[in-house]
Write a protein that binds this DNA or RNA. Structure first.
Lengths: 346, 346
DNA sequence: AAAAATATCCAAAGCGCTTTGGGACGATTC
DNA sequence: GAATCGTCCCAAAGCGCTTTGGATATTTTT
């Protein structure tokens, strides 16, 4: 069933039917009702390709996900973020188009997306420090919104980010208040902008208390379970091991917990662990009492909001670039406690 | 830059340029080379909407992800599965379109996808027992492939599945061989087809050894960390607690480990835990020695393969429905061991 | 009652591509 | 030398929609 057939059934022109369906005023209400009824009855939906071609809008938004051929890491927050974004898209009649791309092929993919008219805009994930992509996408003239920020980018652009710096400052202060002085930072890869900001927050808090940072205690890598485990095993074997761990993700924190367990250390008593909780749906941080003391911010909500901002930008390309900084919330759980007496007195 | 402009620059007709680009034989090789050069030079990519309209193919495949408004659960394997599928799509020039949908609206979404010509086929996730979707999609005439199977469906359809039954039979036998008799099953929701099959495999092994199943030891729910934790806490508090846990997902197994830890039980010594390892990229089951003894099968590889099968089906709609059953592999880790002596002698 | 304004509808062009049905030309065959 | 056959190219139709620029009734205004 297409527009032509539908209009023939109704004894109307395609013009009138199209206008009736799209809410234009040049059609009598009685006629519009008749058209809508018929459309429902015949299960008519306009062909999206034809519509796109005619309007010049694709009503789709692209997410380009980098996938290295070597480590094949998929960001664990990706699923929840896109689920949030997708809800917004659905509400506004947009489709979500996802492409994975090998490192280095990114520009080619963005260029194609633009040239082929596949999408009306793109959502940029996981920006690195001084990310090259943004100025490239900007030059292409493709509307875009960034999940995170790019340091050293003076040009305005549309972004939404968690205040990673203040979150990690708060977390570090919390641990300092408990008496911890040797606090390990298990961070994400520090070429990533968010990881860099987190380290800054951690250092802010240390220097405010005149605690000299120990480079031995600061590790950074892909935030897997195994990285958390390996880092903790290594640090706990030091002559003067850390008494607290600040871990950039729940997944890695779980690895830290495993290492603690193997060392016979009880969380919250012998060892304190804090983490950043993205509120992943399959990994909720406890129902009543949180498993981990954590800085908490829903990545799904971030997806919903940022999608909204991008849609606004597409609708209003000349408008100002919206930005939004979310504050993470401290949630105290069972994984932290005061420095053990043995260490304190040592 | 569109086809018209490109052909004008070349002094050729649109027909010839189109044919040159699409590899048709009616064009001289010298001309084709000239056209390809120009296309590269001007960064020309054909508008995908126009192409779709002309060919009737959308070169896109839909993934419809159910999202309940109440629990908002995103399947943790989703990201890895789609990453795999997406690689295949990219290789074949397909786009991946993802829609989330609230419970109950599924038929509407599939119908729209078909009527609007947004996709050439769909990939069906997480089929339930006797899933209604398949016959509906079949009736719509939309090519589809299923990740998993649907019991009690006599009609042929394209699917790829892990042999869940044999995997859980093997796992249970492994635990029985270690002397365990009270083996808990922490399963996914048993309306889901895969969970039902897993339970069957578990029961197969028990009955082959004449171990009567204890309904108290069989729990099923959404496979979150918390569900694993809560289940284990509950079961370990029984008068005669299980000595082994067979857990349907790594995430829940991590929850079980947390419960074991809180009860002061060492994995592999005081308590055995086995799980199913989908080889998620952010949750690799150990580098050298696996954390958990597990049945192992890569869900990313599943995505790659199934996408390939769906593309075949779209290219050859009259052809036979391909099916594929993957066997999971037993990987022995540190989380299992013989029944503790205290229990054995009790 | 005539003129102007408004409401309601339609024919046709156009979005950028593919594909059908030739046409022109040189090479081959009889 | 005419008929046949490939080779190489083109004009135009068509995919299903939106939208422009009227056309025709119907009201409203003067």
């Amino acid at each position: 069933m297409n527009l032509k057939e539908l209009s023939e059934k109704l004894g109307l022109s395609q013009t009138t039917v199209s206008r009736a369906l799209n809410g234009y005023p040049e059609v009598r209400e009685a006629t519009r009702a008749r058209v809508l009824d018929a459309a429902r009855h015949y299960n008519y939906s306009p062909n999206s390709r034809a519509k796109s071609l005619a309007t010049g809008q694709s009503m789709a938004i692209g997410h380009v996900v980098p996938t290295s051929s070597t480590h094949e890491m998929v960001n664990p927050i990706f699923a929840d973020f896109t689920a949030g974004a997708s809800q917004t898209y659905a509400r506004h009649g947009y489709e979500m188009v996802i492409s994975t791309v090998l490192d280095g092929d990114e520009e080619k993919v963005y260029r194609k997306l633009k040239a082929r008219g596949t999408v009306d805009g793109v959502l940029v994930h996981a920006p690195a420090m001084n990310d090259q992509r943004l100025s490239f996408i900007e030059k292409l003239g493709l509307p875009y919104a960034v999940h995170g920020r790019v340091s050293d980018r003076p040009e305005p652009y549309c972004w939404l980010d968690v205040n990673n710096r203040s979150a990690f400052r708060t977390a570090t202060e919390f641990l300092l208040d408990l008496g911890h002085r040797r606090i390990a930072l298990i961070n994400g890869r520090e070429e990533m902008d968010f990881a860099y900001r987190r380290r800054m927050g951690y250092l802010d808090a240390l220097s405010a208390r005149r605690v000299p940072p120990d480079p031995q205690l600061m590790l950074a890598d892909e935030m897997t379970e195994f990285f958390g485990y390996r880092s903790a095993m290594q640090l706990l074997a030091l002559p003067r091991p850390p008494t607290a761990f600040l871990v950039s993700s729940m997944i890695s924190a779980i690895g830290v917990r495993r290492a603690a367990e193997e060392n016979g250390l009880r969380l919250g008593a012998d060892l304190s662990v804090m983490t950043f909780d993205d509120d992943l749906s399959y990994l909720r941080n406890g129902a009543d009492l949180p498993i981990f003391t954590a800085m908490h911010s829903s990545v799904r909500e971030a997806g919903r909001l940022l999608a909204e901002m991008l849609i606004d930008l597409i609708a209003n390309p000349g408008g100002p670039r919206q930005t939004r900084l979310l504050e993470a919330e401290l949630k105290i759980g069972r994984s932290t406690g005061p420095v053990p007496f043995a260490v304190r007195s040592a």
